[in-house]
Design a protein around this nucleic acid. Structure first.
Lengths: 191, 191
DNA sequence: TTGATTATATATCAAAACGATATATATCAA
DNA sequence: TTGATATATATCGTTTTGATATATAATCAA
């Protein structure tokens, strides 16, 4: 499922402009499991328009470019359903926060704490974000995904709050770290 | 933190070839929060070599191309520490499974169940993968990330198993779905 | 035993995606 | 009043991806 498919998915929820689709990905219903930038959204919309999967209505605005509102066509809905009927590829995740915590021993204690607290906040805010949307009348799939997100975010935040001492107790310059580093070197060379 | 930085990170754990680095991303310690393909790993290693961040030892092999083993230099370690000292960007996640479950009402019941059961298996297998590695002697950061992964994967699998009826009870063609779709259209147009 | 599959290795490249940038007014908070 | 943010349309250089190339070794199932 590429960015074009996801734009079709967004437009299956409601008609939207490129800017609004970006907001749906970034802050809206998709924000916890999908994102794409303007660099791919606008080309995708142009391609979908050329292929007849969407139609476009331009609304003149004062002091701004005309707003282009895209709507899903029947052809587009069929294409979306076809994509949804395939098997999903594995999740793709890239987390700089987890990567930095993984290398916690190479960070200063202050930086380590900063990243950890920010990451906890990220999940707490994510929960509030999800809870801030009234679930009444939402389709079952969306409710399910909402509940999944909450479960995962709460588990992550709870684990990190309960285990922060494990990470914050690292002494960057002590013998234990060096011993651990030497153990890693030895383990690596054993291969 | 781009692919070059992550290659430096991988080499901080042990010397490795491009192929081994890919395995570390795909199946090893990074597999739950970072991945990259050969298409970016080999160019990254070549750039790091040119920049003096790594050195390279070629080991001749019978019947195969020579194995190129890369090692981190002091310059490379400094560059890695510098990258780790920055603030992380937000996590980037792209999940086709969650996207498909989100649009559950557009799927057949059989396909919905297939995706759901596969996704539960993905997390259960992920837990077994993590638990299959002996944590003894691992640095605190790595232990912390290991625990976080377990907490998140278990929460996800548990939630989905406990709530699968919510998703599997969707009747694709019934009035409820149409009513929900109409509600969505009305909600969308209210904007 | 044999054929299929997977593992081990090095890579490249066309296509897709990203993030910064361009342009410019409206709105808001200090 | 000023700086930051929001609302809009986009593009483009850079990065990344996924398929592909090449080829033998090892493993596995029939």
């Amino acid at each position: 499922m590429d960015v074009k498919s996801l734009c079709l998915g967004a437009l299956s929820l409601k008609d939207a402009s490129g800017y609004e689709i970006k907001k749906m990905f970034e802050e809206g219903p998709f924000s916890h499991f999908y994102d794409a930038g303007y660099g791919s959204i606008y080309p995708a919309l142009n391609k979908l328009l050329a292929d007849g999967f969407v139609t476009c209505t331009e609304i003149e605005q004062e002091g701004r470019p005309a707003k282009k509102v895209y709507s899903l066509t029947e052809t587009g809905l069929s294409s979306l359903k076809e994509d949804l009927n395939k098997l999903p590829v594995l999740d793709k995740t890239r987390s700089e926060s987890i990567t930095m915590l993984f290398f916690g021993h190479l960070l200063s204690p202050k930086h380590r704490e900063e990243i950890l607290e920010s990451y906890i906040d990220y999940f707490r805010n994510g929960c509030e974000c999800i809870e801030g949307v009234d679930p009444t009348g939402q389709p079952a799939g969306r409710l399910f995904v909402r509940g999944l997100g909450l479960a995962v975010y709460e588990a992550a935040a709870n684990y990190m709050e309960e285990n922060k001492d494990l990470l914050l107790s690292i002494d960057e310059e002590n013998d234990e770290t060096e011993k651990q580093n030497n153990l890693l070197v030895e383990t690596g060379d054993a291969a």
